[in-house]
Amino acid sequence: MAGKSQKESVADELFNVEFVDRDELTPWDRVLLARDKERPYALDYINGIFDEFMELHGDRAFGDDGAIVGGIASIDGKYVTVIGQQKGRSIKQNIKRNFGMPSPEGYRKAIRLMKQAEKFHRPIICFVDTPGAFCGMEAEERGQGQAIANNLYEMSSLETPVLSIVIGEGGSGGALAMAVANEVWMLENSMYSVLSPEGFASILWKDGDRTAQAAEMMKCTSKELEKLQIVDKVIDEPKPADVKDMESLNFVLKQEIINFLKRYEKITPKQAAEERYERFRRF
């Protein structure tokens, strides 16, 4: 598969090719799939997987960031706190969602909901999908660095199980701020990296167009990160995830999440925090 421009729907392209062998997808193909507009976003999964979902808003300090959604959901007769980084498909949605690039108030909302989950003994499930934390002036003025740092700091000792699933783009610190989890999973065609292939290429070769080569080098795909033990589980995508046809993917994810919750029922909240600490101490 050759690299394609970002504007086309990569998944559609792939559906038209009958005999795509998944193993032949290049890292850059997978990066494009991770960013594809037809790919399901956080709310698509939340609505598809959980039986109920009540959204809760605001960071209690400045505002409500549309790039992060969160609330209380139920699954298999249990309540969980769900938080997701949310992109938009239309221009109007993307103004609201800021293209999935969270501002400090988004991260502060996320940690507020996580502390709330800890208080009421609810496990936490995060859906990670961001090109990165927002790089604007307002974000700096309101302490983007501090907001992310504080999430890493507080998440490390949460006394409740945390699961993070990278569903699309796992863009750097902006993604990690929702991925200090007991288990980190990735969908097969998602990515997780310290900077974008564009950024990597422009720093390394002063040429932001050598993205395919950069993606090759960066080891940012799910399979490579599983080998490096940065990721615990890869969720197969027999066909690239598509918002128009998510039923079987949602079914698999639902079963996996239920199994995760069952596994962690046997562990005390303190043990969950200890286990998470050890997980990240290894690196």
């Binding site: 740092a149 700091y153 490390s156 750097s172 990690l176 200090v180 310290v194 990240f280 690196f283």
Partner: peptide, 26 residues
């Protein structure tokens, strides 16, 4: 910032150091 030559491993250092700060503070 992060050291790009070490890829996503360098990203993990942010979580590793922050949690050590937390234990020190506790």
């Amino acid at each position: 910032g992060a050291r790009m030559q070490e890829g996503t491993i360098s990203l993990m250092q942010m979580a590793k150091t922050s949690q050590a700060v937390k234990r020190h503070s506790e």
